[in-house]
Design a protein around this nucleic acid. Sequence first.
DNA 1: CGAACGATTAGCT
DNA 2: GCTAATCGTTCGA
Length: 195
Amino acid sequence: MTRTLHPDDFLPDSPTVARELIGAILLVDGIGGRIVETEAYDRADPASHTFNGPTPRNQAMFGPPGRAYVYRSYGIHWCLNFVCREEGHGAGVLIRAIEPLEGLKEMRRRRSLDDPKLLCAGPGRVGEALGIVLDMNGLRLDRKPFKVLARDRDYDIVTGPRIGISKAMELHWRFGLAGSPFLSRRFSPASRPTP
DNA sequence: CGAACGATTAGCT
DNA sequence: GCTAATCGTTCGA
């Protein structure tokens, strides 16, 4: 039995939410799959878009929890985050990789790619496969076009430093489903499953 | 107003 | 492993 996540489920700190999201199902207009990799960001976090306070781009992250924060990465890719904490805090979770389960045909068409292991293995790839666009910025995650279902059981989780950043490398705020073939990158062998 | 810089990816060595 | 591609955001002058 699965439960649709409610905005209140996103009130805890972002590393806690990022960990809870491993194994959850994310669908956009019915297309998507199981979340297998996430990263947490917080206001008091030099690597976060919100570190220097509110700007036009990051306003959604300072809005209420349980909403989408969509941003353009490297002028090319649309990346999806889930806003966490109480309104005004500025925290969120980046969705970095998904195990494709629903709408494989449409995802393959959007990505011009067959290999399911590469369809959603990275935040930009997730954005392309799920059809994320800027119009979705700020939308509630418990309403169309989104559907987010809580994980149906416990999963073994691995952690490590976040990818593609140069600050706060000491924070191990990247979370992954242990052994998943759908990760954007392997976790360091030194990273061990956590309880 | 100009310029540097990315929470990345694909393609090549 | 290395780098070009590509453009909106952000910050300093």
